[in-house]
Nucleic acid binder design. Structure first.
Lengths: 338, 338
DNA sequence: TAAATATGCACAAACGATTGTACAATTCAA
DNA sequence: TTGAATTGTACAATCGTTTGTGCATATTTA
């Protein structure tokens, strides 16, 4: 990188002091009564030399970074990628810059990134945690860093979050199956210890219980395509199969689909399927898959509004928001009533 | 944010100087013969106070940021999200941190982000440009910032890039259609001025020409779902329809699919379809869509290897790499020969 | 015309970390 | 016992900005 121009270079070239240069370049020429002529000269030279203020120096001095950090567990998951895209656009509206990092569903990476973010003086943090540990997040929160959890949160903490009503969503999904006469259902779950997963499983079980159904199973352990695939494969080894599957994420559904296809199991004739998370492609599948859609845009907007308001005020208002999911009715559930 | 601990706090608490603290914390205690006892005390206190070095100060002093910037046009496009995820993981292996930013297919945002990256002293840049302008990218490149273009590049410049053989890919795709007897083909393109688009269109046209077919059209103007949708909708207004469609990206294909479905056009019975870009879900569609797969992982790995080698050496070696695409044969093309 | 006010700008300290060098204290050799 | 060598640490400058304050010079007022 060729030597970058700094404020000193401009000062030298214009014959003015760095003070004056700085003031002009920060739009404070009025306040400090810099002569119009000086102002123009400085601006011209800055333009000519292609000056860009060193962010480190600025931030070091001001303590402000104008940056919001975003940690997502995996950008290759369209659900999270979509969130990242939304957050990115929304953050820009507020005049901040987003730094997005992918933690790869790895708590250690998550911790490291958190440290880096702190070292970079981020002003606010939006995080979709891996979900296995919370100590490090709790720490930075109590140290005063404004943050909002997205999607995955920790029920027992007072940290702000915006998420979907996972219990309700799962309950709705299970109920839909039940209402179509399904009495033997398999639920393929994601990360066992994560709150959304726990609540989804809880909602699922509650629906089963309320309907007096005991023939159900919950398997799996990751929000991944592989997990959906292998669990479905294993399922299909058995002679006795459930009549319906409920996958707790779009990635799991994708893996499930793959396994079903390999074994030539048709949806919904041979088995019914419903999944958490919506996506455009679900409409175009061999059988469009009924899904529980999370209000992603609203989640992002609210999270950011929440965060920004905490950024500006010294007092923190803790807001924990749960939004209602919505069923996208498609054709993957067969009615087997009687 | 409660006052962060700095090196001074540790110095005060240990009764040692900031110099000594800094040296210990940077693993230079050997070099400067810091007493083992001092070292242990400092390390203990740093741990206790939860010290994190201020990245701005460090970088300001050293001029190093240990950061690679990545600009993608849209994270909601799975193709780019996937690249981001790959790059992120790959960069970590080299000990750097990735900062990902979404330019929203907006050149102005791209320019702004570039400035911010420079202000943040990024050491290397990977960029998938919006594709409409190149001046700003050219400038930073010639100022000495190591960078690699991904996917979209500029043929006439000597800037390094890694991309797919777009001409070849499109030629293969068109040829596949032709070999199945198609003589009336519609191509829905993306951003008209972008290199990949131009080359794909060129490959498409060349195949047509080589086969002596003149009944083809190229329409559209964006790598977006909307573009695919509206172009297909418009197409379907006509009485005379092509027998096949070639979409130049997965997003366009998605929109096309939507329109076809709305109009109850079946694939491949009523119309055949082939698309650029591969994705897992293409396998599970009503009719699995044949696609031209780009070697995403390889692209990312090579790009990064390329970038890192330029990071370490003062001399820049310009590498422009074109990788071969691959056809993923699925069931969306009907044979209408004779 | 002298005093008061306004105008335009620069000095120097500070942000937090790093580092060449200098210096005091300890140990060693003779 | 004294000078040399070794050991352990601190001083102070520096990175590029920002900013409170103060000092000239110019302008206005009476």
């Amino acid at each position: 990188m060729s030597a970058k121009v700094n404020i000193k270079d401009i000062a030298k070239k214009t014959g003015l002091s760095t003070t004056t240069v700085s003031r002009v370049l920060n739009g404070k020429s009025e306040k400090y009564r810099i002569a119009e002529k000086s102002k123009q000269i400085i601006e011209a030279v800055a333009l000519e030399l292609n000056y860009v203020a060193n962010h480190f120096a600025t931030s070091l001095k001001s303590g402000k970074s104008n940056t919001i950090g975003l940690i997502v567990p995996s950008l290759s998951n369209p659900f999270f990628a979509n969130i990242a895209s939304n957050i990115n656009a929304e953050v820009r509206k507020y005049g901040y810059t987003t730094i997005i990092v992918d933690s790869d569903e790895n708590v250690e990476i998550e911790k490291t990134v958190l440290q880096q973010f702190i070292a970079r003086n981020i002003e606010g943090l939006i995080i979709i945690p891996c979900g296995k540990e919370m100590e490090h997040i709790k720490n930075v929160y109590y140290q005063g860093l404004p943050l909002v959890l997205l999607d995955r949160y920790f029920e027992e903490l007072e940290i702000p979050y915006v998420s979907t009503d996972n219990f309700e969503g799962a309950y709705m999904a299970a109920n839909l199956l039940i209402n179509h006469g399904h009495k033997s259902i398999l639920c393929i779950q994601g990360i066992v210890d994560s709150t959304p997963n726990k609540l989804r499983v809880k909602g699922f079980k509650q629906a089963m219980k309320d309907a007096g159904i005991e023939n159900f199973k919950v398997v799996g352990d990751a929000f991944s395509v592989e997990n959906g695939y292998s669990e479905t494969k294993m399922l299909l080894q058995n002679k006795v199969r459930p009549t319906a599957i409920f996958t707790l994420s779009n990635t799991i559904a994708m893996g499930c689909l793959k396994a079903l296809k390999e074994e030539n199991i048709r949806i919904p004739q041979d088995i019914s399927l419903i999944t958490f998370d919506n996506h455009l492609y679900l409409d175009f599948l061999a059988t469009p898959i009924t899904s529980i859609a999370q209000p992603v845009e609203a989640i992002c907007k609210i999270a950011l509004k929440n965060l920004i308001s905490n950024l500006n005020e010294k007092e923190k208002t803790v807001k924990q928001v749960i939004l209602k999911p919505e069923i996208k009715y498609r054709e993957s559930i067969s009615n087997i009533k009687n």
